[in-house]
């Protein structure tokens, strides 16, 4: 067993000083060492997208990276989407749109879809419908049939609220 390394992860603006083996995935480190269990793990081989987080603004699969590789990067997870409770806790526009459009059922894929959509809309606020469908086909959902997820994300895009709370 390789010895643990002391690393610092910057997640949602907070520095987490943790100790991990090099083999620990970013998703497991976020969930275990950082206590941020909003990032779910659905397949651990990069297909389902439940673990999608933003790294330096880009959506990535946190199960396909090792935590040690994320040092010095700016990470964002679902816990950082809404305003903090001391700032009123207002939901991000995507979170509210997911509720309003019934874009979730069991909720397990939801964090990944929210982060995928948030990263995409920040990078491409005017993304067209076809490209948006292509991007959202990156993640799997087993409950909703995707229709309401697409609707929710399009609604936020149309309102120009991709980065908004």
């Amino acid at each position: 067993m390789a010895s643990k390394m002391a690393i610092t992860l910057n997640v949602n603006g907070t520095e987490h000083e943790i100790r991990v083996e090099p083999r620990k995935t970013l998703s497991d480190a976020l969930r275990g060492e950082c206590g941020l269990t909003g990032t779910n793990v659905g397949c651990e081989h990069g297909v389902c997208g439940a673990c999608t987080v933003l790294m330096d603004g880009a959506p990535v699969r946190s199960c396909l990276m090792f935590a040690v590789q994320a040092q010095g990067r700016e990470l964002r997870t679902v816990e950082g989407l809404a305003a903090s409770s001391k700032d009123g806790g207002k939901l991000h526009a995507l979170q509210q749109a997911f509720i309003d459009n019934h874009a979730l059922q069991c909720g397990f894929c939801t964090s990944g879809f929210l982060m995928l959509a948030a990263g995409t809309l920040e990078q491409q606020p005017d993304i067209d419908d076809e490209s948006l469908r292509e991007v959202l086909s990156s993640n799997l959902c087993r409950c909703t049939g995707y229709q309401n997820i697409l609707r929710a994300v399009r609604q936020v895009r149309d309102a120009g609220q991709g980065g908004a709370r």
């Binding site: 997208g49 999608t52 790294m55 880009a58 990535v60 699969r61 396909l64 990276m65 995409t120 990156s138």
Partner: peptide, 12 residues
Amino acid sequence: VHNIAHYPIRQR
């Protein structure tokens, strides 16, 4: 490039 895996995979 649009045929290669999915958007988040292509970021990495």
